[in-house]
Design a protein around this nucleic acid. Structure first.
Lengths: 348, 348
DNA sequence: CCAGGGCGCTTAACCGGATAAGTGACCCGA
DNA sequence: TCGGGTCACTTATCCGGTTAAGCGCCCTGG
């Protein structure tokens, strides 16, 4: 079992003081190039890695960011979104040798408590807020706390923190116009949680676009994103008198469930029903027919969020509280329509 | 912006020394009950939370465990397994106020490097090793390092660390006998990564069980768990001369993909083909027909692993290196066959 | 020849806790 | 009445880094 090596060990080996070793390792002035080289060589040879706790205690930074997820195990598991997001976040963080601390919570109160604890413990330097809501207590909470944070979602008006987001309205218009062009006049939508910001943005966008087209109907049912609810709502929709000829789902899981229900009812797809899914996960290509979907680069989205958070953290001490930096908002590429077999023209 | 409160602040407010505050907060002798009560009250009122770095530096523990995942973003996203596992791990950890540090890596070398760094930095007190392989370099590596670790998978012979696992052979026998009873004589299996331990255990179990039954054929194709490969292998299987009447998939994602291919080829399920999936995620209930699957409680599995790791960590300093503790092995309930619509008798 | 200044390094304090050792005050038994 | 022990608390040190301040030494200019 190897022994952990400290700067004191290096100092002893190099015949200098702890201070000199610290200056050398951190690339600061105060040591000659000859000494620096010698110290670096010894440190490398001994396999030195600084003790994170000691450094954190000195410089008051944890070199880690946190993310709290308020979703059930089942939802988290089956929604490819989160792991893809985390994967993107992780890539950026580890490139900057930051760690990622993850916690799963049950309620908002619990989530706020986690942020307070992380802040007080100095366990993390900042947090990423997922699942941004229409009126989100977390935004003010972390701002009041002075905990650097980035909202993964937006836009947020009057924001006191940066947001990384993409326009959700445009894809809504795209998909509705696409379906309209295929002849669909009765369109239904199985939406996500109504408290989420992007759900409400999509609600508005669909309503506005629908108003501009002479649709016979455009109904929306909200759900909790689970396959069960997706299936249940689909069953109700398809057994109504004048059933829709196209259904748009706010996530891929519900779309797959909807497809299952359609099969069960003996409907031919896309001949008798067109199906569209948000979030083009690999799941969309597994079904038969493959799902027409709205694709976006989720890892890149997470990556960008982490990047903004890291810049916010590094700016935090060196610069004065700059409103322009704190409310910096980054817009990503909106989701692109990716037509596949699950959508087709309405037969005459 | 609130100020962070330290034990010195509490000491000043209570009119005692830092030491007394520390004793009081940690429930150690050295202060009277009256003083302890006063200190605790003041600490609670001021909202004291100990600085994690300072405590870590003192007691040499990070109060966190790490998990490194060696899978691509796409695989991680679509496999419900990992998020469910993490969710279970998380529940146990946060109950013991431990943190979870997550890192995604590309190669074994990278993974080993992460463990070494975490150990040297003292960023984590222990790690959980997922995706245990047939010959796994990580096991010896962490043991040599002296980094507490638990293998999530097994059994591992000659192990130098505890393993949490469940018998995979029994479910294999169950499913094969179940299919046999339904009349299936040509069974195929789309297996996972051959380097993984549980894949090889299943390989053996199927081969042995098949040998005891008078099957016409029992073929296995290995894959990388992705839907693409699942679909591709299925397509090949179903277009062969004497195609199998039943296919067993090593994960749910490939099973869904296989179902899609069967639909595409116009096969009736379960009339013309029976399909079985390992890992009963909600995904299995979304399809039509619903997938017969082998269900296990993955969050509980993660939970148990975290529990063993935590006990290993707490035992680590107080007890002498006890071989019995270090190689403690916990067996969980094996997967249970959950028959649904995707399996049926072979028509005469 | 000496004051002044920069370089190169050491010393020591500090971050915020934990904890061993030290110090009175008090109680008890001989 | 006094030594010894216990209690309740203080003091000081340590963990392993960072960093301001201090201190010789050599170089340079007047």
């Amino acid at each position: 079992m190897t022994r952990r090596v400290t700067i004191a060990d290096i100092a002893a080996a190099a015949g200098v003081s702890k201070g000199a070793v610290s200056y050398a390792l951190n690339g600061r002035p105060g040591v000659s190039e000859a000494t620096r080289g010698k110290i670096l060589a010894i440190a490398a040879e001994m396999g030195f890695v600084p003790n994170r706790a000691a450094r954190s205690l000195s410089v008051s930074s944890a070199q880690a960011v946190g993310i709290a997820l308020r979703r059930s195990a089942r939802t988290l598991g089956i929604e490819p979104y989160f792991m893809e997001l985390i994967s993107g976040i992780e890539a950026t963080l580890s490139a900057g040798s930051f760690g990622l601390t993850l916690q799963i919570v049950g309620t908002v109160e619990e989530e706020l408590e986690v942020y307070r604890r992380w802040w007080a413990e100095r366990r993390v330097d900042g947090v990423l807020l997922c699942d941004v809501g229409t009126s989100d207590r977390r935004l003010d909470f972390v701002a009041d706390l002075g905990l650097p944070a980035v909202a993964v979602g937006g836009p947020i008006e009057g924001a006191r923190l940066p947001a990384v987001w993409h326009d959700d309205a445009e894809p809504c218009r795209d998909i509705l116009e696409y379906l309209y062009a295929l002849g669909h006049r009765r369109v239904a939508r199985v939406a996500g949680l109504p408290r989420l910001l992007h759900t409400s943005i999509r609600d508005t966008a669909y309503a506005e676009t629908a108003a501009g087209l002479d649709l016979e109907s455009m109904v929306t049912f909200h759900s909790d994103y689970t396959g069960e609810q997706g299936a249940q709502i689909t069953r109700r929709l398809l057994s109504s008198a004048r059933r829709p000829t196209a259904i748009i789902y706010d996530n891929d899981v519900m779309a797959v469930a909807g497809l299952g229900v359609a099969h069960e009812l003996g409907l031919e797809i896309p001949e008798q029903l067109s199906v569209v899914a948000w979030d083009d996960s690999p799941l969309c290509r597994l079904t038969h027919p493959a799902l027409t979907s709205l694709a976006r680069d989720i890892p890149a989205y997470g990556s960008k969020s982490a990047e903004v958070l890291m810049s916010l953290i590094s700016a935090d001490g060196t610069e004065p509280p700059n409103a322009a930096v704190r409310t910096f908002s980054v817009q990503c590429r909106p989701a692109q329509l990716s037509p596949r077999g699950s959508t087709g023209p309405v037969p005459a």
